[in-house]
Design a protein around this nucleic acid. Structure first.
Lengths: 227, 227
DNA sequence: TCGATCAATGACTATAAGTCATTTATTAGG
DNA sequence: CCTAATAAATGACTTATAGTCATTGATCGA
């Protein structure tokens, strides 16, 4: 008797359809100006039904976000699925994060709106758990690469992998948010190349953590192998 | 006949009283959960009166924020009102920004909630202009110090002062927001010292921009003079 | 075929931003 | 001191939207 299974599937599909609709509206308008009625209409459902599948507007917002984090995780995994050295992997991760920022800007924005505590406090615990799970998976990836770079003698052994990860991450975030918020003011008016600055700052930070030996062969390490 | 002048003064005072009330409520609850009725009650005025003095909730929010920026500007000015060298001034500015972050956390938070475009779009043009004016004044301060460091041969002459400023600023912001958002997760659970990391990252970035000569006497440059 | 269970609906409630006709206070002139 | 004119303040009202729940409709198992 596959009825239970089919119902389960249909329920899942409906949840997805709702996320699709919510995504369209949130991408277009952001959190506050988006209305549940709009999302319901876009999903061709009544508002009541939305609340059958998601506890609150905030929960729905997080559900959309989780897709973004899933995409980021996949991009990160692909970035280090090569047999290159850990330093190269680290730069690959940096490039992957920047690519995510460029190609998935809507998700990036949504994620950082999260800092608003308003959202946080209205989210169901299941959603929070899923968020933390994905967060952990992504951090494990990043920290793992840095640890291997330390173990392989490429980064100094007084480098704490988590600390290094946080430093690079927050440096990238700071600039990306600046770019996202008012890129034009900096690039157009003052002629800055923010993307190049981001690469430069991260490179400086990584170099400052490298062993003398690794620094000497920096170019070999970070240049992609030519077959 | 000073009646007109007195009225002007009283109007200004009332505007201040309203900001005081709004500040109390916004500090306590953040933007969305704060209500205009609450603010009105806290100011011992009716809601209608609030709208006589400020165009919208968003405008009132910005008015509070401007106080914060004013405080930051004063702190920055004081940080460089010494006869020390420009590198030392640059570190002073970094310390001043961190002090602002620690001592005026509420303003810091409010400022970064600004990134929410919802707010932006509802603000009157007068408020926007005031914001930009203060922003410009602060940036002029920072960029001016870096320019003097370049001119004085302490930073390499291929360093663009604005670019350097943006790099240091966004690096600091990235970490401060991380600290603000979930300091405990990093310090408590993983034993990181985020404050030390912030200083370290900024130091690395500055050192990477210094001339060889200045780097050689780094300690002398950044150590406060002992009389 | 029919009662039971599950899914969906939309009218309804509560809350909060913003408005405006009315009321209250202040000023200037006679 | 009185009064008309002007300015300031009020709060009931309008509108918008998140979230609820009694009712309706669909699907299932026997």
């Amino acid at each position: 008797m596959g009825i239970k299974e089919r119902k389960e599937r249909e329920k899942g599909a409906r949840r997805e359809e709702i996320i699709n609709a919510a995504e369209r509206i949130f991408f277009e308008k952001g959190f506050a100006p988006a209305t549940m009625d709009e999302i319901a209409e876009s999903a061709e459902l009544s508002k009541g039904t939305l609340y059958l599948y998601y506890k609150s507007k905030e929960d729905l917002y997080i559900a959309v976000l989780l897709r973004g984090s899933e995409i980021m995780y996949e991009m990160f995994k692909k970035a280090i699925a090569t047999d290159e050295n850990p330093i190269r992997h680290l730069f690959n991760l940096g490039e992957a994060y920047f690519a995510y920022f460029q190609e998935q800007r809507n998700y990036f924005r949504m994620y950082y709106f999260l800092e608003n505590p308003r959202i946080h406090s209205q989210v169901s615990s299941e959603m929070m758990e899923q968020c933390e799970l994905l967060d952990t998976r992504i951090w494990d990836l990043v920290v793992g690469i840095i640890r291997r770079a330390v173990e392989g003698g490429l980064l100094r052994d007084d480098v704490d992998p988590l600390e290094a990860g946080v430093m690079l991450w927050s440096n990238s975030n700071g600039l990306m948010r600046l770019i996202d918020r008012d890129e034009w003011a900096w690039t157009g008016k003052h002629g800055l190349n923010l993307e190049a600055m981001l690469r430069k700052a991260n490179k400086l930070l990584v170099q400052a953590m490298m062993t003398e030996k690794a620094k000497a062969s920096f170019d070999d390490l970070v240049t992609p192998a030519r077959p």
